[in-house]
Design a binder for these strands. Sequence first.
DNA 1: GTCTATATGGAGATAGAC
DNA 2: GTCTATCTCCATATAGAC
Lengths: 200, 200
Amino acid sequence: MSNIEQRILDSAKAIFVEKGYEGTSIRDIATEAKVNVAMVNYYFRSKENLFQQIFMDVYGTLLNKAIEEEFENPTLYRKIELLVSFILDNVAKSPRLPLFVLTEINRESGNLVNDEFLRGIQQFFNFFEKQIQDEINARNIRPINPTELFINIVSMCIFPFLGLPVLERVFESRDYDVSPFIDARKEQIMDFVMNSIKIS
Amino acid sequence: MSNIEQRILDSAKAIFVEKGYEGTSIRDIATEAKVNVAMVNYYFRSKENLFQQIFMDVYGTLLNKAIEEEFENPTLYRKIELLVSFILDNVAKSPRLPLFVLTEINRESGNLVNDEFLRGIQQFFNFFEKQIQDEINARNIRPINPTELFINIVSMCIFPFLGLPVLERVFESRDYDVSPFIDARKEQIMDFVMNSIKIS
DNA sequence: GTCTATATGGAGATAGAC
DNA sequence: GTCTATCTCCATATAGAC
């Protein structure tokens, strides 16, 4: 891949993620990549096409990372901890990604959510579900719908980052600092979840 | 307020919430309101100004509803249930609102998150925090950081709606239907939360 | 492959008649 | 207040020279 092509991809990714599809112009992308506007269309035919490539790349990368994780670990605690860490680590690295993905998934052109992406999540969830069901059968945790548990965990990991601008300003006048909140978030979620699912 | 002015406001609100600021044109708004483009600028001076009015209205309304709620109720369970119901009911009524608000709050023009809005949330949270602290002191629930609890509850209520297009397609091939999920969500969250905070 | 120049369309906004 | 017509700008995209 040529130097220019790569520079365009890098710039496009940064700006699309930052401003969304509508908020981004190929002029901004070209300027940021230090190339000329015609180059963007030469390599990628159209803005829409360029965006598709970026989007597939963004969640294709996430998905591959998720599948490569090793979840065949001994304890239930460790399994859940791996899930929580995986999400939190990736979101902390690119806090704007969740909002970007959610926004683009909600743009009507439904073909964006491609089958490969969905199969990845399904595969991931099927494995998680089996682990949870085993723990319930072994009476290590209370009976709980694995789907709900999965959704609860994902919600608590991702949502605080979406609302960060609000959280920062709501709690800034209090004894509350945001960066330690993020650092401590993993422990807090583990604590909350394990307390909820244990047999009492 | 004139008929035309009101029609513009209604159309603008629907389209802005649906497509976001960048994705909306005043031509679309005018067409939807069955008025001509010049009328939009005559009544609202600019697209930006119209948007500001819509945005303030949207969350001003939410805020007023929240403050009017009666949270001085007897049991802890009922207090939390009121919070959960309030969020879920409002989100179910306008599922696109959370993504809209989050997107616009993250658009750099930070002045959108106005002080009135923040004070409202703070006031709401301060009250919630005090209730939780009292319950902890009375040893009715285990010690837990009220801020974390608040964030956890809000996350579990709102996030599933943001990810609904993904959830629908991830679970459609399974024994899982989305509308009962939403209906049952309140119970599930209550269950999850109460199990987590009770003294074991 | 890379550039300049330009075609084409759509956006926000306004002038000016009625 | 309401309309038509139009200004100006900026977007995507491409033609064509080198």
